[in-house]
């Protein structure tokens, strides 16, 4: 029997993403892969491994660490980098605060989410990265639905959504002036469902946070949040222990947890299929205003 690649929508999305990975390697001098420890960035690493096999992936991993990450995320990150033999660069938001580049928000709902942008742009400049590969997907959020695969950023790291380069066929134009860079999104066309189905199909190892576990949590604005030491409780908020899992992983301050008993990938796929809220529904960073994502993206956010 002839051995071929099985054909389905996941394989098509995979081929497209691998094509983009190879374009990045061919068109840029110092690309980095933005690694957050979440499923989308783990998927990017997997696709990069496939694109360049048997060679190592030609990108370093860059993690912008808010200092408010789940311990599991950091551990998973370090192990993965070691396993694939990739360079790991960590940009620290704490350092940006210490250096006075940014000012920490105050109050109970303080988050370092917005501060990450400065740390990210400073780090990209420091390591002279000319392309940053991100796991952004167009189905996630309405501003992201307008994003290109190859998204141009000016010398200040800014995105100009009204003046984007047209992208046609398989022809990607990564030309730029010195000091400018590109954000590149190989999994633009994937949905949350595609991501989980693919992870299941490929049996990709995932952090334990995605599977059900017992955790100390409290409820705020209808969302369950992890009761980590730096989370300040408001009056009336109570810490309880629940069976939860993460649907997305960001930093602790803005990651909503869902009550779930899913302990394997099949169950997660079924859960995602039945979900009636988008995955970013639990992300308080998006809820600050209707254009919260667009505004952050224009400034240079992920």
């Amino acid at each position: 029997m002839t051995k071929t690649i099985n054909r389905n929508h996941l394989r098509e999305l995979e081929s497209e993403a691998i094509f983009i990975m190879r374009e990045i390697a061919a068109q840029f001098e110092r690309p980095v892969l933005l690694f957050s420890g979440g499923k989308d960035s783990i998927l990017l690493v997997h696709l990069a491994l496939k694109a360049f096999h048997p060679a190592k992936i030609p990108f370093s991993l860059l993690h912008i660490d808010t200092g408010h990450n789940f311990a599991e995320t950091i551990e998973f990150r370090d192990n993965l980098a070691k396993k694939i033999g990739a360079d790991l660069i960590v940009g620290s938001v704490q350092k940006s605060i210490d250096k006075g580049r940014v000012t920490e928000e105050t109050g109970v709902e303080a988050s370092r989410n917005k501060l990450q942008t400065t740390t990210l742009l400073d780090t990209l400049e420091e390591i002279k990265a000319d392309a940053a590969i991100g796991g952004g997907r167009r189905d996630e959020e309405k501003a992201r639905a307008k994003e290109r695969f190859f998204s141009h950023r000016d010398a200040f790291g800014q995105w100009d959504p009204k003046n984007q380069r047209p992208e046609l066929w398989n022809l990607f134009n990564g030309r730029k002036n010195v000091g400018e860079h590109f954000r590149i999104f190989p999994i633009s066309n994937w949905t949350e469902m595609d991501v989980w189905q693919y992870i299941l199909m490929e049996s990709i190892e995932m952090p334990s946070l995605y599977f059900t576990h017992k955790r100390q949590v409290f409820k705020r604005n209808g969302t369950w949040l992890a009761a980590e030491p730096y989370m300040q409780l408001k009056e009336g908020e109570e810490i309880v222990e629940m069976d939860v899992r993460c649907r997305t992983i960001g930093d602790v301050t803005c990651t909503g947890l869902s009550l779930s008993t899913a302990d394997n990938l099949e169950d997660i796929v079924i859960e995602v299929a039945a979900a009636r809220e988008t995955e970013r529904g639990g992300r308080s960073d998006d809820k600050r205003s209707e254009a919260a994502m667009e505004d952050r993206k224009k400034e240079g956010y992920f």
Partner: peptide
């Protein structure tokens, strides 16, 4: 080559080596 697999045939749009 398709990752760590060798295949016999590749068709349009497939990313292979």
């Amino acid at each position: 080559d398709f990752y760590n697999d060798e295949i016999d045939e590749a068709i349009p749009q497939q990313s292979v080596t």
